[in-house]
Design a binder for these strands. Sequence first.
DNA 1: AGTCCACAGGAAGGGCAGGCGA
DNA 2: TCGCCTGCCCTTCCTGTGGACT
Length: 388
Amino acid sequence: MNKESIFRNKDALSIKYSPEKIYHRDEQINALSRILAPMLRNEKPSNVFIYGLTGTGKTLVTTYVTTNLENFTIKHNIPLKVLFVNCKMKKVADTEYRLLAYLSSLLGEGVPATGLPTDEVYRRFYSALENIGGNVVIVLDEIDALVKKVGDELLYNFTRMCETIKDVNLSLIGISNDLSFMEYLDARVKSSLSEEEIIFPPYNYEQLKDILFDRAMVAFNPGKIDEAAITKCAALAAQEHGDARRALDLLRIAGEIAERNGDERVVEKHIDLAEEKLDLDRMSEAARVLPKHSKIVLYTVLCLLRNRDKVLTGDIQKYYEHICEQLGVRPLTQRRISDIIAELDMQGLINASVISKGRYGRTREITLSLSKATHDKILLQLKQELDL
DNA sequence: AGTCCACAGGAAGGGCAGGCGA
DNA sequence: TCGCCTGCCCTTCCTGTGGACT
């Protein structure tokens, strides 16, 4: 209690924090503002498609612009409603039905979590929209995840809705991490959704430094963090496609580690420790919430990769069945295991790539990119969770 | 040039749970 | 309570495929 804390305002390093100044995104802010401006004259704006890798400020800029827009319209008495949805939110907006139900609830129209036919949910959503009237902006964050899961028919319906609905200026903002995502779409959806496109390039080292120094000023007490630690953070994040979110996480965790160790200030060493911890935490949490059979498959992969650097689907299948026998559970079929491996790959828990071994068949080659310590800890965690 | 392996991955559908409305 | 709907997990059946081998 007597010691001065390292942090002054830790929230400044979280993703929920909206900084006073957004660095190196003036171009994108202006572009989005110009696109949405027609709403201020009660005219329908274009739909917008926003691309950029994780941690490039897409969501930050979008919320910044829409919040300012809302504040302005409240002052000038212009009807505007902004609906923000993260399509990756499990059990909330990851299917067509749930997304519509969630949007309807934001508009004040209750829709049960399941049970209704989809056309009825659409009908309720339409009527909620028409009741609200005026200007409505729907922001679909991580839209690529949704489309990959449920197809593009939903977007087709949405874009049709933009054109047909009465008395409402409806505009869609789609945000995606995946640059190739547009290729999956139906041509009509593509042209309608991307009337306007805004691209968020990755931050470079210098830009990340500006952002981190700015946030560190707010987050840490004076003299509690080394300049070298911040530049190291920026350098690490710049290597990883300029992900500002990761850089901020690193800084926050480094601060926490320093505080816990009772150190005076945050130095480079703490950043290294933070990087290790970040990897472990991400893996550990992802592994913890996996369904049972996915856990067994992950456990299998970790076991097999303890003394070699790659495994194939067939090896996993055999060992998986062996573990299932040990546990006394009925093993799933190869078809399902193939999907589970693909799911684990999608989540970044393993790296799987399809390769051909000529006359020895086509298969997936699975590797890991974990430190030895993380590997062992996750293996142990799964072993305990599975009761092995 | 043709064969053939060991899967990948699409399609269809079963079965169960959760929920609504009559 | 019953009929119906969606979501989810899974199986079965099937076709497709890259490239080493013959």
